[in-house]
């Protein structure tokens, strides 16, 4: 049987199905790995209640472990503590930016960006802070839609919750 650390590192190779540049560990969806004899329990939490990627993530976890000879797998979904964008690692935020998605700021510092108040979000393409929110809702539940007033490109913002 693989150790908790080995399993965690295996699962860290699983990309988020909707934002494949970051993995489920750095996104904060993978919460814990519990090894009990020949049984493994994987604890995950959804970013949003209705996130349609959760089923895919569960399937990916099970098949990844099966490929490594672990058959006795249980995936458990927990809601508490509720997922927050603060769990996304700094490294993952940088990956988001390079991918064209403005990463979430700290929840304590943010909020204003989505409440329509003046707040300078940086365009992930040209770096300008001259940006406006187009919609609080974007291509997936976790994102809002912004546009850069300088390079004119629309971009996704990973909203803070």
């Amino acid at each position: 049987m693989l150790s908790k650390e080995q399993i965690t590192s295996l699962l860290s190779a699983i990309p988020d199905p909707e934002i494949p540049v970051i993995n489920i560990k750095e996104l904060g969806v993978l919460r814990d790995v519990v090894v009990n004899g020949n049984e493994v329990e994987i604890i995950i939490t959804p970013t949003y209640s209705g996130c349609p990627a959760m089923k895919q993530i569960e399937d990916d976890i099970i098949s990844s472990l099966e490929r490594n000879g672990i058959e006795n797998v249980k995936v458990k979904m927990v809601y508490h503590p509720a997922w927050t964008t603060d769990w996304i690692t700094d490294e993952a935020k940088e990956k988001l930016r390079k991918y064209g998605i403005a990463p979430p700021e700290k929840t304590t510092a943010d909020k204003g960006a989505l409440m329509g108040k003046k707040r300078a979000l940086e365009c992930p393409r040209c770096g300008s802070k001259n940006t406006v929110m187009i919609s609080q809702f974007g291509s997936t539940a976790c994102k809002a839609l912004f546009q850069c007033s300088d390079c004119k490109e629309p971009f996704d913002y990973f909203k803070c919750i």
């Binding site: 959804p46 949003y48 209640s49 209705g50 996130c51 349609p52 919609s135 809702f137 974007g138 539940a141």
Partner: peptide
């Protein structure tokens, strides 16, 4: 998009 997003949260 807003309404379908909202709908998805509610279904979740």
């Amino acid at each position: 998009l807003a309404l379908t997003n909202l709908s998805l949260d509610l279904i979740g």
